[in-house]
Design a protein around this nucleic acid. Structure first.
Lengths: 214, 214
DNA sequence: CGCCCCGTTGAAGATGATCAAATCTTGTGG
DNA sequence: CCACAAGATTTGATCATCTTCAACGGGGCG
């Protein structure tokens, strides 16, 4: 795990004393927006989504997270979003109080957390650009390229671990528009869709060009 | 300034050795997206906007910043966004290398920076909800309430330091829609507009209700 | 005084949403 | 193994919100 990389054996032993592990099924709510923010989590295996809701049920997914990512940091007493597993997930759980004590012993951990949070913030700003200014086609193209890179860009084919509904709520669209847009990209030969949950990138350059609004 | 609060006299003297100050005019670009991220800035006075551009000129403002806020943190070598003054601004500039050395001496500073970044991230997630799922009316209502709170909610009247164009690029709308929506809120008696750059909140509860999608 | 920029207002148009239905997938039980 | 039910995805038709295009008004500054 990235979070504990670079620790000595002794430091690592200390590190392990503050963490708990958990394996959870798909579709489980790990915590809800507003719950007391007692833990910080890192993902060992699986995929997690974070989202916020409006009172009438409208939902915005703010991030899809994968192994190595962390979540659950909060300035105030409560979490700012809900976290839910999308697949079977293995988590490390760090109780907030213990973690803060550990920071004093291992300042490197705090630096890593700051770096990870800064990266999350940059991703959030990129997503604001997408939500505020990109067309449906640009949003879907961006989503596919970013996800492909995140899941390891060895092969052009990759699995979508999330439903159309999740994609729609991440991109600020409806499921119908996501479906139509994917069909359109397929029709134009930019991607292939072996089945509903797999995408094959066929013309990466053109896809990138669309994603950047060119 | 919040960043140096709680330091002893001696620590503060050390703190002052790493920072430079700058006064700048309105409309000045402090740095551009992609520039080498050499400095971290905090705002002493004035207002700053951060934004990202698409190649065809479409712009998304990701934040309006005010005294006490910081900006310029970056994981990679380059800034992730452009920063521009909206008013006359007084800044503190922290060279990145010196600041990192200072962190080892004053771990409290790093904790504060982590807290501030976490808060920025929460604000970004709230903005994603706005951009992805709120209507124009809800966006403008949210914007007014949040700005009013940020600028000090003593009096219901406050000045908008930014143009309609900036508001539009922050809310993912056009200037025409922003203008029409403000007119609509005024017509419905929720706000008053003494002039184009001043807003008076008249029915906060109703405005909050709209902002939350209720 | 007059120009220019900013903001407002109006009319027409387009993108994406909504409503509706068909198709495909998956899991269950006979 | 097959039939069936439930849910997810795709496709189609219509609709609404917001954008685009256009024109007008007003305040500030030369």
């Amino acid at each position: 795990m990235a979070f504990c990389a670079g620790l000595s054996t002794q430091q690592f032993r200390r590190f392990m004393t503050v963490l708990g592990q958990a394996s959870i099924d798909p579709g489980v709510t790990i915590f809800r927006e507003g719950d007391p923010a007692l833990n910080l989590y890192t993902i060992t295996a699986g995929a997690v989504k974070l989202y916020k809701l409006l009172s009438d049920g409208r939902r915005q997914i703010t991030a899809f997270l994968f192994p190595g990512d962390f979540f659950g940091l909060s300035v105030h007493e409560g979490y700012a979003y809900t976290a839910e597993s999308m697949t079977p997930v293995v988590l490390c759980r760090f109780p907030r109080r213990k973690l803060e004590a550990l920071f004093d012993e291992l300042p490197m951990l705090e630096k890593k957390l700051l770096g990870a949070t800064t990266q999350e913030l940059a991703a959030a700003q990129e997503q604001m650009l997408l939500l505020g200014r990109k067309t449906a086609r640009e949003r879907v193209a961006t989503f596919l390229v970013v996800l492909w890179r995140r899941l390891g860009d060895k092969t052009p084919v990759f699995a979508l671990p999330m439903s159309r509904s999740d994609i729609a709520d991440f991109l600020g669209l409806t499921i119908e528009t996501v479906s139509r847009t994917l069909t359109g990209l397929k029709r134009d030969g930019l991607i292939a869709l072996p089945d509903a949950n797999h995408v094959a990138i066929q013309r990466l350059d053109d896809l990138l060009c669309i994603a950047e609004g060119g």
